[in-house]
């Protein structure tokens, strides 16, 4: 019975099937919002209001010809999309959507899972770097270099800003952090600054405008994904969508009080809260233009990192004040 349950966890909910459906829905939501911000229609014809468009795109890409460059590292080149998808799907299992119980923690909810989560969210960046590097294309190489350069910019502010709610809650376990803020909703406001810093950093992590520098199409064609096509590109796109869900879920858990302790209400609030976070991500995407890679680094070290430290200071003061 326990084996079956684990299988259901891994494959149906909240595993691959749920992730696939929800992440394609999120892509549709993001595309539709982005289009409506720009006074366009967005996907319209596949399914009701184009809701099936990302799934159609996925299957279309799956059916397309798959080309591996002659001079690429073939093994690495082919394995990376699957690795990337596996990593972000694993990260999804850590989110306290179903493993909310504080008394009987399941094997994916443990003290320190926040750190594991951040670690798992850092890995896709290296996957992108390796993807660009292993395809030996000039544009991919430039893209890969940009991925790493950008990483030095946004990673530290992201960690710092996720740290501050954890310090205030006094726990490294996401379920506990969420429960802490559910019990004291007013304290969410203390972390408002960190929430916005984290939003910007997540935007950079997901490589969306203004940080879509590694695959800026007008500069370096497809960037890291220039040589990818067919199934591998489909998996990469799915991976990006899943990463968006997971990152939004992380922000919702840490900053917005997580998901109340009941599987069904938890699911509904998970969807609502991630969509809320993704709304902001789309808004940032629509509001700004792409900046240069040197501007990313200077921006995050000049503004984001000091602000994150300031937030930490505030949190420590508030913590002292409460206790």
């Amino acid at each position: 019975m326990a084996t079956l349950k684990t299988f259901i966890y891994l494959i149906v909910y909240p595993g691959l099937l749920f992730l696939f459906i929800y992440s394609t829905f999120v892509e549709w939501y993001d595309r539709k919002l982005y289009a409506r911000f720009q006074n366009r229609m967005g996907p319209t014809h596949t399914g009701k209001a184009g809701i099936l468009q990302p799934i159609a795109d996925f299957f279309k890409l799956m059916a397309k010809e798959d080309i591996t460059p002659e001079r690429a590292d073939k093994g690495l080149f082919s394995a990376l999309p699957a690795f990337g998808l596996a990593i972000v799907s694993t990260a999804m299992l850590l989110l306290p959507v179903w493993n909310y119980s504080l008394e009987k923690p399941s094997f994916t909810s443990f003290n320190g899972d926040l750190i594991v989560m951040l670690y798992l969210l850092s890995l896709p960046t290296f996957i992108f770097f390796l993807a660009g590097w292993s395809s030996t294309n000039l544009f991919s190489t430039v893209g890969a270099a940009r991925v790493l350069t950008m990483l030095f910019g946004y990673e530290v502010p992201l960690f710092l800003s996720v740290l501050s709610p954890a310090i205030l809650a006094g726990s490294w376990r996401m379920a506990e952090i969420a429960a802490f803020y559910r019990a004291r909703p007013l304290l969410i406001l203390v972390n408002l600054l960190a929430f916005f810093i984290a939003l910007i950093c997540i935007q950079a992590k997901l490589e969306r405008t203004p940080f879509d520098i590694p695959h800026a199409e007008t500069e370096i064609v497809g960037g890291t994904f220039t040589e990818y096509s067919g199934k591998k590109l489909a998996l990469f796109r799915l991976m990006m969508d899943v990463e968006m869900v997971v990152a939004a879920g992380l922000l919702a858990t840490v900053f917005l009080g997580g998901f109340p302790a009941n599987p069904w209400i938890g699911l509904v609030s998970f969807i609502l809260k991630t969509l809320f976070v993704i709304f902001f991500l789309s808004l940032i995407r629509a509001t700004t233009s792409r900046i240069r890679v040197d501007q990313v680094v200077s921006f995050s070290w000049k503004y984001l990192a000091p602000l994150a430290v300031l937030q930490l200071l505030i949190v420590i003061l508030v913590k002292g004040f409460i206790s």
């Binding site: 289009a35 409506r36 911000f37 720009q38 006074n39 366009r40 229609m41 808004l283 629509a286 509001t287």
Partner: peptide, 20 residues
């Protein structure tokens, strides 16, 4: 910062300018 946001949000509730 965010000088474009009011325009974007205003158009969120408007009919798209494009035609099917």
């Amino acid at each position: 910062i965010g000088v474009f946001i009011p325009e974007l949000v205003r158009h969120l509730f408007k009919k798209p300018a494009t035609v099917d």
